[in-house]
Design a protein around this nucleic acid. Structure first.
Lengths: 194, 194
DNA sequence: ATTTTATTTGAGCGATCGTTCAAATAAAAT
DNA sequence: ATTTTATTTGAACGATCGCTCAAATAAAAT
């Protein structure tokens, strides 16, 4: 054996996630990343391969954080639907002021990239699918508990939630009104299709 | 007087709109624009001032096209709500295959830009507001005709529509299923809050 | 202590970025 | 025909882009 890597890979990916989430793939330069994570080009390329390679790891990190946050909401709520509602409020309202960006990093990436980065688009789509699957699990649980009509398709309801999340997080950036956003989310669960 | 500009300003803005809409502000280079509109840097800068200046004109053009499309839908439908539904289907479904980009250029811009381009963000927000105002007018018309419960806030319903549009256009890019998108839009108008 | 080797450094590569401007051009005015 | 002047051209500016790699470094193995 020989010299061992001294940088904290998780910490580096966390910082890179914040930067990419805030500025997007194209507007984040390797120089920006070098400064933020305090690594020189050679080390970054040795560890992550390329700008795309590092971005890929931040997409994974962002998605894992979201899924973990959803599970945390589930632990804190006896009702799966209340857990889902709490998650939506955290994602739509709380992120507007505290997170690197109020909008969903995955939606932002889908919006930003073109065929020129098809591999990144495919990964992003897959991650959105993973999150939708977590929604499905929660909704099916709610159906078992009788909180949601079990003749409805859990997959369709999950899609509905994801569409609301993406739409609301962008709207929240345009009109950051916590009370209004709160009402809108309450209404989503008080009416069709829930 | 002297030599007169020979380029077609509207045609140039149309082409620039398509490019910016497709690739976004940062990923569209002036070189890309020069090639697409067949003008040399000096002419572009004389006519539009800067990359931001030209982008601003394309935002205006994009918004005008959307509002015109909405009015066209109104002319083709005796019912204002049917007109709104037709508009949504055109924006969500038809654009996925024919337009430069399936997602809304204004939403894409809100998602992409940061404080570093606050002026462009402010313009984009204002344009989203203009479109919402057109939705309000249509909904108020529907309320007069008894198509929509007139105890509801037309402004809130318009916001609801805009959130659905943004969410659906991004979802359409992830899962381009015409039949499913069509059903989702039908459901929006068959249930709460309509 | 010396050797081995994974890691880190940072100068610098060629390409491209947004932009400028002096010179060339061409249509209107004389 | 000549002058005037708005427009167009395109070379080129300094800055920055993503990325490479030879040299320096430092921790583990001997």
């Amino acid at each position: 054996m020989a010299k061992v890597a001294k940088f904290d890979r998780e910490a580096v990916i966390d910082i890179a996630t914040k930067l990419y989430w805030k500025k997007g793939f194209h507007a984040t330069s390797m120089r920006n990343l070098q400064d933020a994570i305090d690594m020189r080009p050679g080390s970054i390329y040795a560890a992550f391969g390329s700008k795309e390679g590092l971005f890929t790891e931040t997409l994974r990190n962002y998605t894992d954080m979201g899924i973990e946050q959803l599970k945390q909401c589930r632990r804190e709520n006896s009702s799966p639907i209340e857990a889902l509602k709490a998650f939506m409020k955290a994602q739509v309202i709380d992120t507007q002021n505290s997170a690197p960006n109020g909008v969903c990093m995955l939606a932002k990436t889908i919006n930003e990239l073109t065929n020129e980065n098809q591999a990144l688009i495919d990964i992003t789509k897959a991650h959105l699918g993973e999150i939708a699957t977590e929604f499905v699990k929660l909704i099916e649980e709610a159906q078992v508990l009788g909180e949601v009509d079990n003749t409805k398709s859990a997959q369709e309801l999950a899609t509905h939630i994801q569409i609301q999340l993406v739409g609301l997080r962008t709207y929240g950036k345009v009109n950051n009104d916590k009370a209004q956003l709160n009402n809108i989310i309450d209404n989503i669960f008080n009416h069709y299709p829930f």
